[in-house]
Simulated scan of single mutants.
Amino acid sequence: MSLSVPPELHHDLVLVEHLLRERMRARLAIISMVGPHLIADPSDRLRALMVLAIARLGNRTGEQVAHAAAAVELIEAATRAHDDLIDEQARRAGRVANGAWDHGVALMVGDYLFALAAGEMARSPDPRIIGLYSQAVMQICEGQLIQVTSLAHREAALTAYWQRAEALAGSLLAAAAQAGVLCGGLPEPLLEPAAQLGLRLGLARQLAGEIRDMEADGALLQAGSVPLALLYAAGEPPVPEVQAVFTNPAPATIAAALPIIRATGLPAARAALAKQQDAARQALAQLPVGITTPWLAALIDQIGGLAQ
Rank of each mutant, 00 (worst) to 15 (best):
169 A>H: 04
266 L>H: 03
287 L>W: 11
80 R>W: 04
243 Q>C: 04
43 S>I: 09
2 S>T: 09
67 H>I: 09
152 A>H: 08
280 A>P: 08
104 G>K: 03
292 T>K: 15
57 L>T: 13
105 V>M: 03
163 Q>Y: 08
213 D>L: 10
163 Q>N: 11
107 L>S: 15
101 W>Q: 11
99 G>F: 11
176 A>S: 14
308 Q>P: 12
243 Q>A: 14
186 L>N: 04
74 L>T: 05
105 V>P: 01
297 A>C: 07
238 P>V: 09
306 L>W: 15
187 P>K: 07
98 N>L: 15
75 I>A: 06
244 A>H: 12
286 Q>T: 02
189 P>A: 00
261 I>E: 00
184 G>F: 05
29 A>V: 11
284 L>A: 07
115 A>F: 13
33 M>L: 13
12 D>V: 13
272 A>K: 04
134 S>M: 03
29 A>F: 08
286 Q>A: 13
5 V>L: 01
109 V>G: 03
139 Q>D: 13
270 R>V: 04
223 A>L: 14
111 D>A: 04
209 G>S: 03
55 A>T: 14
26 A>R: 12
172 L>R: 12
113 L>A: 04
39 I>E: 05
179 A>Q: 07
303 I>E: 06
16 V>H: 09
153 H>P: 01
22 E>R: 08
29 A>D: 11
6 P>R: 10
304 G>P: 03
125 P>K: 06
95 R>H: 09
230 L>F: 02
94 G>S: 06
142 E>D: 15
129 I>Y: 02
237 P>F: 03
216 A>C: 06
51 V>T: 05
135 Q>N: 12
50 M>Y: 02
254 I>D: 01
158 L>M: 04
11 H>C: 10
34 V>R: 05
135 Q>P: 00
145 L>V: 12
237 P>K: 00
296 L>V: 11
258 L>V: 08
139 Q>C: 11
302 Q>M: 07
85 L>F: 02
172 L>A: 12
36 P>G: 04
34 V>M: 03
34 V>T: 09
155 E>K: 10
124 S>N: 11
279 A>F: 07
115 A>S: 15
120 E>M: 06
226 V>C: 02
25 R>T: 05
38 L>K: 08
252 A>T: 11
76 E>W: 15
109 V>R: 01
73 E>M: 12
195 A>W: 09
215 E>W: 04
88 E>Y: 06
34 V>C: 12
55 A>K: 15
215 E>M: 08
222 Q>K: 10
